[in-house]
Each structure stands twice: as C-alpha cells, then as structure tokens.
Design a protein around this nucleic acid. Structure first.
Length: 582
RNA sequence: CGGGGUGUAGCGCAGUUUGGUUAGCGCGCUUGCUUUGGGAGCAAGAGGCCGGCGGUUCAAAUCCGCCCACCCCGACCA
C-alpha cells in the first residue's frame, strides 16, 4: 500500500464532536468518517481492520462447524408479526414501505428470518445440528447513538443461530460458541470477561456477555476475584449483610415536613440511608405495585421485570399519583399500605428499627420492623449489586467495573421455533420445534473496543491481528535518491516475504510522517534517514514501545516476520482452511 | 422524549453581547523556490447560500420566531 495513492485523510486536530479515544482516533487516523449520528463510512484502512476482525470471526466460526450465509436486510412485516415483534420491537426498528405500500423492517437482528429459512428447508433430525451465521449490516434506531462505533444506528454485526433437536444438543452448541467467541475476542487482542447476562424475557436461564473492560463502557460488571463469579449488574446477585442492629421500640409517627427523599428524611432524622425503607410505586399493567429497598440502594428494574414476569411497567408518574390519591408521593410506606402488592428486597429480611413513610403528608414512621409493623407479599432480589458487595458464591467482596459488551450469546430454546412453527421430524415420526441458540458479535463495535484498549496520547497502537498493515516503511527524505530507492526495495521485498506493508512515499517532512505513523498505529516501523545514508542502516521500531534497533535493510523483513510471530502467535490465520464438519 | 451546548472555508476556532465598509485567524489545499530525523521557511494564490426558512431594519453572521443537524447529560430513586 502506498500512502500517496491511498485515501488516508489524517487529521491534525481532533474533530470537536468526538469525545472518546476510539472515536477520535479512528477519525483522526483517516479510517472512517461520520455520515450522520451513529452512521459511519469506512475508509480504506478502516475497512482493512474491520475485515480482519471479520476474518477472525469467520475462521473461528468455520472451525466450529458453522456455515456462513447472507440474509436480506429488508424483512417483511408479516414475518415479524409471527413472532409478535413487529409491535414489540417498537421505534428501535427502522421501517420503510415499498412502492406498493408493503411494510418492511430494516433488520436489527434476524431470528425471524433464519427461523423462516430453516423451517422451509430443514425438516428432519438427520439435518441437525445446524449452525448458520452471517456478517452483515444491521440497523437499530437507538434512543441515543453515541461514542462513535460503540453505539451506532447502522453497524456491522456477526449474528449466528444454532438449531438442535433437544436441550442437551443445544447446550453443546452453546458451549461451542462460548469457546469460539472467547477465542475471537482474544485473537482481536482484547482483554475481556465472560459474564452472566440477563436474558430479558426471552426465557431460558442462560446467556453470557463478552465484555471488554473500558471506562467508556456502558455496562457495569460485578465480579469476584476470589472465585471468578462475574455478571452484569443487571443480573448479578449479591449476599446481603445484616443491617446494624437498632433499638426495639414501638413504632412512632414523627413529623417530617417537606422531607421527601431518603436523603432529606435521613438527614432530618439523623438516620443512615440504609435504615430508611425506600418505597417505590410502580404501575404494572394498570395495577400499582410497591417495591421496597433500603435507602442506600436502587431498584434494579431488570431484576424486577423478572420477578413481575412482565416488562410492561413503569414508575408512578404525576397522573398516576393523581389517580391513586391514597398514595402520597414522598410519604408512602409499607406499613398500612393497602390495595397493592408489596415486593421487598432481600435486604429487608429481618430489618428492624427502620424509617418509612407514614402514608400521610409530612409524616414518617420510625422504629418499624419487618414482620411486626409491615409485611411484604414477596421477598425477592430486586436491587443492584455494587462495589464491595459480597459474592453470591463465595462471600468475598466483589468489584464493579465498566465494560463494553462486544458479544452476547443466548440459549433461545423454542422462543421462535414454537410460535413460528419451525418443526423437525424425529426418528419416530414425531414433530418437535427446533431448540435454538442465538449468538451475536458487534464487529464494528469490537474494532472500536480494540482501539479503546490500545492507544496512547499520540494515536492508535493496533494489535497485529487487526492492524491495517504489519510494517510501516518511512523514507524520511524523498529527495535523496538512495533513501527512496532503498525504501522501495524494502517495500518490495517485505511484500514478497508476505508482510503487509504501508510505505509513506509522500514528499512530506519527517515530522509529518512520524506524527501520522503514530496516529495510524501500524505495529512496526522501519525508518530510513540520515543513518541509512551514512551507514546503510534502517531503524526498526515497534509502535507499542521498546528499543529501536538498527539493521541493514535486507534484514528487515525476516526480523519483522520473527517479531510478528512472537508478538501474536494467533496472527497465523487458518482462514481458507476447509471448515471442520462433524 | 426532557435538559444543556454547538452550527461561520476541508479541520480547529474568533467575530454575535452593543446590527454598520470587502467576514477574520491557525492548520490544511494550489503554484514557485528553499528545506528534509518529530506536525519546515519565504512568496504568491484559491476556497464562505455565516445550518435552513421567515420576520424586524435603510442595513442582519449579529436582533426576533419557527425548523433542522450534531454533541453531551438524563430518560428509575419517593
């Protein structure tokens, strides 16, 4: 690749709109450009890196026996009505009509499509197991696109689907993908954690996310260094510690004029937040439900959805308070609360000497105890774990870190096959719905995650496996014929050695070339300058740091080859090998 | 959707408060000469529906209204 002949519009200054490192640097390195909010064009170098991620994915998928297909982006409404998701997916699905007025969705995911494809073409247990995947553009009209490639509205995703005859076989397929995904993220050069994830209301208990730790990550992961437990805080369990014991006095009503929040009430009564019962009223499918947590905690609505068995709920709004005048905003409490189901967080088990709303404006109750002064209909885990909470497995304190979710896998079971009548016939002539799994990797997001983990002040520092090239050849003075010729020769021979080389053949000053090289982050750099003229030596340097070494130009390709091999054993791609069939 | 911010040359910005010649600066770009190990120097140039529409005014980048786009925060804490 010649710099002079390739579109690599590097930017000296940061675009004002880009705040996080990956976004800023991918723009500055001339790898991509923004089209609209959450929508990007990939330029030559960006596409190369994106393709390298894809190649790693293909390689691992094929090795695991999955087969690549390509499905249409446009999906007919009727298909999505079969699963009920035409309604349910809401405005997040981009939609359009053809000239005849027929509705289509721009695929945000392809469960319906694949289920339809398979039910039409697979009918016998003899054709199972089956694992199909694609790498394709996806559309999701995100509430708030942000962070460049991390949360886009149009993005590249690998989505895969497994079809098995029974649960055991499905678990086996799932396990296989679990392992493949681990290898994929690792080969891309990312540190990552596999964490237990919420399945939403999809059903089944099993889902994992592959999370790349990064400050800008939108997920929070709770994990235990002692035993290895790791889960998204949406789902993470934690051990409750007993509240400090208090006085056993009879409940008493006290005036708390204008004190509504836990903070205000706690401060006013000189009681720590954990001794205040926070009572949240939700409207759940038209019925009010009270949810209790201690004042130092927050209700975890993902967990709550699971407990309620529906996601059709929301916190009381102005109009709801008006509709239920018995509940007094700011002063609701579980003691004496009527006509409402009460769900209490596990922490409240055995809670005594608590403060709660008195269900009377400007009054709270003190010294209330669970069991005596208030009851719940159900004790459940409805609050979020946080830093320092006890691990549910081993009891050691857990940590919470931010992570970028680069992949998620689900055991779907018959969630789609059943309503869509995707059936196979077993050896006894019996029909059964396919046992499915679904597996997604955000390809463009993964690339951004790599950039997020691998950069410094000056620019990107690509891991070899996804770098746009292996070697960056920099002749400093293009006016010197000897330098130019030697650089050209090196470019030539390195290519013959199988290296991917970018030569900066522009007539630019040394400073410009160095700065751009830092920005692009190609792993190895060969500089030909004064020392080359004087002694015939090329300076070889790694972008990730380390010593510079001087060596004759002829020795560079072999040396780089060796460094590549030791830097990343995984660089040797097995792409192109025939898939392993089972 | 709520709140905040920003739209002026390819990029980064000033100018807008207090309306007034020809709208500026740095980088980049073009041409020539010089230069060549960390974003070179000199000289000469090109490049703007000042986000859009409407209004006020003798006069609008600047004031008013509506709209659009982009960015940030939030969209659960009683």
């Amino acid at each position: 690749m010649r710099f002079s002949a390739t579109l690599i519009p590097t930017l000296r200054e940061s675009p004002a709109d880009a705040e996080i490192a990956s976004h800023r640097l991918l723009l500055r390195a001339g790898m991509m450009r923004q089209v609209a909010s959450g929508i990007y064009n990939f330029l030559p170098l960006g596409l190369i890196s994106l393709e390298k991620v894809s190649r790693i994915i293909r390689d691992e998928m094929n090795r695991a026996g999955a087969q690549e297909i390509l499905m249409s982006v446009l999906q007919p409404r009727e298909l999505w009505e079969e699963s009920g998701r035409w309604e349910k997916y809401g405005p997040e699905m981009m939609r359009m009509q053809d000239r005849a007025g027929r509705d289509f969705g721009l695929g945000p995911t392809h469960e319906e499509m694949i289920t339809d494809l398979v039910r039409q073409n697979v009918t016998s247990y003899r054709q199972l197991p089956l694992n199909l995947y694609q790498i394709a553009v996806k559309f999701r009209d995100e509430v708030r696109p942000r962070f460049g490639l991390l949360r886009g509205r149009e993005f590249i995703m690998k989505d895969g689907y497994s079809f098995d005859r029974d649960e055991e076989a499905m678990r086996h397929s799932y396990q296989r993908m679990y392992e493949s995904y681990s290898r994929i993220v690792e080969r891309c050069g990312c540190e990552f954690m596999v964490v237990e994830a919420d399945t939403g209301l999809i059903g089944g208990d099993v889902s994992h996310e592959f999370s790349v730790p990064a400050a800008v990550g939108e997920d929070k992961i709770a994990f235990c260094r002692a035993c290895g437990y790791a889960a998204n805080v949406e789902r993470a369990e934690y051990g409750r510690r007993p509240l400090a014991s208090g006085h056993d006095e009879p409940p008493e009503m006290v005036q708390t004029p204008g004190k509504r929040s836990v903070e205000e009430v706690g401060a006013f009564l000189s009681v720590p937040a954990e001794r205040v019962v926070k009572c949240m009223i939700y409207l759940v499918e038209d019925r009010p439900v009270a949810v209790l947590v201690t004042g130092d905690r927050e209700v975890n609505e993902t967990k709550l959805a699971k407990v309620l068995g529906t996601d059709k709920f929301r916190l009381f709004e102005e109009k709801d308070w008006a509709a239920y005048p018995d509940y007094i905003s700011g002063y609701v409490g579980p003691a004496g609360l009527k006509g409402v189901q009460i769900i209490g967080d596990l922490q409240l088990e055995g809670a005594r000497d608590m403060v709660c709303g008195a269900n009377r404006k400007d009054f709270h109750l003190v010294h209330v105890a669970y069991g005596n002064d208030f009851q719940v209909d159900r004790m459940a885990d409805v609050s979020s774990a946080r830093e320092g909470d006890a691990c549910p497995r081993c009891g050691q304190p857990m940590s919470v870190v931010a992570g970028i979710e680069v992949a998620q896998i689900f055991q779907l079971r018959t969630k789609y096959s059943e309503p869509m009548h995707a059936l196979y016939v077993d050896e006894h002539g019996q029909k059964h719905p396919f046992m499915m799994g679904t597996y997604g990797i955000g390809v463009s997001r993964l690339l951004a995650a790599v950039a997020e983990q691998h950069h410094d002040q000056r620019g990107l520092i690509w891991p070899v496996a996804v770098a746009p090239a292996h070697l960056h050849v920099i002749p400093l003075n293009m006016a010197e014929g000897a330098v130019r010729d030697a650089a050209e020769r090196l470019y030539q021979t390195a290519g013959e050695w199988g290296l991917e080389v970018l030569i900066d053949d522009r007539d630019e000053s040394a400073g410009v070339k160095f700065a751009d090289a830092d920005l692009l982050g190609i792993p190895f750099r060969a500089v030909l300058g004064k020392k080359f003229l004087a002694e015939g030596l090329v300076e070889l340097q790694s972008r990730s740091g380390g010593e510079k070494e001087m060596l004759p130009a002829a020795g560079v390709p072999a040396r780089v080859k060796g460094l590549l091999a030791q830097d990343s054993p995984s660089v040797t791609s097995t792409a192109g090998e025939s898939p392993v069939w089972e």
